[in-house]
């Protein structure tokens, strides 16, 4: 009986009106986070369209046939494509443990090295959020703002400076 009532309360079945607004807690723990689609270049995904039948070449090398537009400036002395991209199924990324991670959960991959940023992002402190302060929010993936191959944030042209006060009589 008691546990039944508790369950009802927990499920939001009975919410006393005087309780004030219901504010969902900031997400914590390993649940999936809603994000917009990952920022793929046009027509590039699924990667298996081309890679499915190809033998895997694990030698670290400069790519000359395809993907020549990608210039790696992200710890490039230590990192290479297959450190993040899964060699056997190219539609996925992988963690250091070998666990496959879909592109829309790429934050888990980034979070392996950037743990502090990952924590702040989950708490809503790093990165841009849109939507409701007390309801549904949309997160962006790390890759929406930081090109994973060249993550440094690009400078922007500022919007116009304010007008200086006009002291002439008009």
């Amino acid at each position: 009986m008691r546990s039944g009532l508790l369950l009802l309360l927990l499920s939001g079945g009975i919410v006393p009106a005087a309780d004030g607004p219901k504010i969902p807690p900031a997400p914590a723990g390993p649940e999936r986070i809603e994000v917009p689609p990952p920022p793929f270049s046009d027509g590039i995904f699924p990667c298996t369209n081309c890679h499915a039948g190809m033998p895997v070449d694990r030698t670290r090398r400069e790519l000359t046939a395809m993907h020549t537009d990608i210039v790696l400036k992200h710890d490039e002395t230590h990192r290479w494509c297959l450190d993040c991209h899964d060699p056997t199924n190219r539609d996925f990324l992988h963690l250091a443990s070998g666990e496959r991670v879909p592109f829309d959960e790429s934050y888990r991959l980034c979070g392996q090295c950037h743990g502090e940023k990952y924590r702040d992002w989950r708490a809503g402190v790093h990165g841009r959020r849109t939507g409701n302060w007390n309801g549904a929010k949309e997160y962006l993936l790390c890759a929406h703002c930081h090109n994973p191959h060249q993550p440094r944030f690009k400078p922007l042209a500022p919007k116009p400076a304010p007008q200086r006060p006009d002291r002439s009589m008009k």
């Binding site: 607004p21 790093h126 990165g127 841009r128 959020r129 849109t130 939507g131 409701n132 302060w133 007390n134 309801g135 962006l140 703002c145 944030f153 922007l156």
Partner: peptide
């Protein structure tokens, strides 16, 4: 319940 406009428009969050 929504975020202010400046929160949503800031490109660096």
């Amino acid at each position: 319940g929504r975020y202010p406009a400046c929160v949503e428009v800031c490109p660096v969050g």
